[in-house]
Computed example of a mutant assay.
Amino acid sequence: MGESPKSTRKKMIEAFWKSCGDHIPMEDWNASFSSWSFGDSAELADKLLALVLSGVKTATCGTLFDYEADNEVPPEEGSYHILTDFAGIPHCLIQITSVTLSPFRDVPMDFALAEGEGSYEEWREAHIKFFNRRAEETSNTFDGDTVLVLEHFKVVYAKIN
């Protein structure tokens, strides 16, 4: 019997992390890391990953209620994350350079633009739709007071296809 897809993805992620060794400081070689994809669909995940790989997207955000629903803590400054496509294939390693909390209504324009998804108005419209979907899935309510986790990051290493 062959390996499960989950086991295969885990091995790919671990191998990718090892391949990043030449791109991170030696003291971080044993650092913990997480892996994830953007969005809630293959189309959105691939679009946002492409923005990261092109250097356009240098920030991302999520609702605090999503972290709570998943029993996860928000990332910390300096933490490493492997970005995958929707299928779980690793493409790049990022490092979080800053993390702040903000109600949705107070997200600064420069942050929204750093997400690389268009104008401030386009960012707001897309995120209202996305966060409303997530609120429904997690039995939460999304509004202007919903706290977001705002993350700036830098690409440390990107796999060249």
Rank of each mutant, 00 (worst) to 15 (best):
G2C: 07
G2Q: 11
S4A: 14
S7I: 13
S7W: 07
R9V: 13
A15H: 05
S19A: 09
S19E: 02
G21Y: 03
M26P: 01
W29Y: 07
S32K: 02
S32I: 01
S34G: 09
S34K: 08
S34D: 06
S35E: 02
W36M: 08
S37P: 03
F38N: 01
F38V: 06
D40W: 12
A42C: 14
E43W: 11
E43K: 15
K47N: 14
L51R: 09
L53G: 06
L53Y: 05
S54H: 10
G55K: 10
G55W: 12
G55T: 12
V56N: 09
K57M: 10
G62E: 04
T63G: 11
A69N: 13
A69Q: 06
A69W: 04
V73Y: 13
P74E: 12
E76P: 02
E77M: 09
S79F: 05
I82D: 00
D85K: 13
D85S: 13
G88F: 08
I89D: 04
P90S: 09
H91G: 09
C92S: 05
I94W: 01
I96Q: 00
I96P: 00
T97F: 03
T97Y: 03
S102W: 07
S102R: 05
P103W: 07
R105E: 13
D106W: 06
M109A: 15
F111Y: 01
F111P: 00
A112M: 06
A114G: 01
A114V: 03
G116W: 03
G116S: 08
G116L: 04
E117R: 09
E117F: 08
Y120Q: 09
E122H: 11
R124P: 03
E125H: 12
A126S: 15
F131K: 06
R133L: 10
R134E: 13
E136K: 11
E136Q: 11
E136S: 12
E137I: 14
T138Y: 11
T138V: 14
S139M: 11
F142A: 05
D143Y: 07
D145W: 06
L148W: 02
V149W: 04
E151V: 07
V155H: 00
V155Y: 00
V156Y: 00
V156A: 02
Y157H: 10
K159G: 01
K159V: 06
K159H: 12
N161G: 10
